[in-house]
C-alpha cells in the first residue's frame, strides 16, 4: 500500500496516527458529472448551483477509459451524481455507454433537466443493463422540501418518480435524516405521496445526515487508528465506501480518482489518475465527512 506522506494526512492535530482504510476490491465506480445544477439548495454537500464549475462536466471521452478499466477490475456497478447529472449535455450518452457495460444508478433531483430528456431516457431501456434512478425528496412534507429546492419541486420530483416507474425503471428516494428523528415514522410520512404517484409502498428510502457544504470545517472527533481497531471490525471496515468504491472527478480540466463520493472538496483525496493506481493508496480518515461513515455507517450505495 502506498502511503501519502503528509503530516496532517497521517496524524491528528494531537499527533495520533489517523485511522485508515485499505481498499480490497473495486465493486462500484461513481462519476461526478459536474457541480452545475438547475437548483441551488442551501444544504448541498457539493455546493452545486446554476453555472457552477468547481467540478467540471465530464464528457463521453473522459469517461470511457474509466468504464473499461473498471470492468477489467471486476467492478459490478456504475453510479452517477452531480450537481444534476441531466444538466450535463453529455450525460445521456455517458449513461448509454455505461449501460452497455454494467447496471447503473443515477442520483437526480427529478426536475426539468431530466423531464426534458424523458424520451431519450426511455430509449435507454434497450441497453444491455438496467438503470435505477434515485430521486431526492428531502422531507415527507412538500413545503419543507420546496423551502430549499424551490416552489413546486416536490410535486415535480414526485411526478417524475411516477413517470420513471411507469416506464419500467427501478426508482428509490433519498431523504435528509434529522437529528433524533423517529425514522420509521418519517419514512411512513411518504406513503400518501407514493400512493398519489402510483409508486409501490415498499420504495427504498436512503437517508443522509447533514454532510455540510464543501470546504466547511465541521468540528467532529478525529478518527484514530485506535478508534478503528477498538470500535470497528473487519466487516464494518469493508462496508466503508472508500473500501470498495471510487469516484471519478474532473477539476480544472484534469481527471482524478477520488476516494469516495463525499470528499471531492479536498485535493488530498485525489488519489491517482487511474482506478488501478488509486486502489494502492491507504486512505486516511481525515475529512469531517469520514466521521459520518464512522458514526452512522453512511453509504451512498444501495446494497451496502
Amino acid at each position: 500500500m502506498r502511503e501519502i506522506l503528509k503530516v496532517d494526512w497521517l496524524r491528528t492535530p494531537e499527533g495520533d496516527s489517523r485511522g485508515y482504510i485499505e481498499s480490497t476490491e473495486l465493486t462500484e465506480v461513481w462519476f461526478h458529472t459536474g457541480t452545475n445544477c438547475n437548483l441551488s439548495c442551501p444544504f448541498c454537500l457539493e455546493g452545486s448551483k446554476p453555472g457552477d464549475d468547481r467540478l467540471n462536466f465530464l464528457t463521453l471521452d473522459d469517461v470511457v477509459p474509466f468504464l473499461d478499466e473498471a470492468v477489467a477490475m471486476g467492478c459490478q456497478k456504475f453510479s452517477f451524481t452531480g450537481g444534476e447529472p441531466f444538466v450535463n449535455p453529455h450525460f445521456v450518452d455517458i449513461l448509454g455507454a455505461a449501460l452497455d457495460r454494467l447496471p447503473c444508478l443515477v442520483l437526480t433531483n427529478g426536475t426539468e433537466p431530466l423531464c426534458n430528456r424523458f424520451a431519450e431516457i426511455v430509449d435507454l431501456q434497450a441497453k444491455a443493463h438496467d438503470v435505477s434512478f434515485r430521486v431526492s425528496l428531502d422531507h415527507p412534507d412538500p413545503s419543507e422540501h420546496d423551502a430549499s429546492r424551490g416552489k413546486g419541486n416536490f410535486k415535480m420530483a414526485l411526478r417524475t418518480l411516477g413517470q420513471l416507474h411507469d416506464a419500467g425503471f427501478h426508482v428509490s428516494i433519498a431523504r435528509l435524516m434529522l437529528e433524533g428523528e423517529d425514522s420509521p415514522e418519517r419514512d411512513a410520512g411518504y406513503a400518501p405521496y407514493f400512493q398519489e404517484a402510483g409508486l409501490p409502498d415498499d420504495m427504498t428510502i436512503i437517508k443522509f445526515p447533514d454532510f455540510m457544504t464543501p470546504g466547511s470545517m465541521a468540528s467532529v472527533p478525529h478518527i484514530t487508528e485506535g478508534c478503528m481497531t477498538q470500535y470497528t471490525d473487519e466487516a464494518q471496515r469493508a462496508a466503508y465506501m472508500c473500501s470498495f468504491s471510487r469516484m471519478v472527478v474532473k477539476t480544472g480540466g484534469r481527471l482524478g480518482v477520488y476516494a469516495c463520493t463525499l470528499v471531492d472538496d479536498d485535493g488530498d483525496y485525489d488519489l491517482a489518475p487511474t482506478l488501478r493506481e488509486s486502489m494502492q493508496v491507504r486512505i486516511r480518515l481525515k475529512h469531517h465527512r469520514c466521521y459520518s461513515c464512522f458514526a452512522f455507517g453512511s453509504s451512498c450505495s444501495e446494497g451496502h
Binding site: 452545475n36 446554476p50 453555472g51 464549475d53 441531466f86 444538466v87 449535455p89 426539468e112 426534458n116 430528456r117
Partner: peptide
C-alpha cells in the same frame, strides 16, 4: 462575469 452556457430546454 458569466458561466459557460448550459441548458436542458431544447
Amino acid at each position: 462575469k458569466f458561466s459557460r452556457p448550459f441548458g436542458w430546454f431544447r
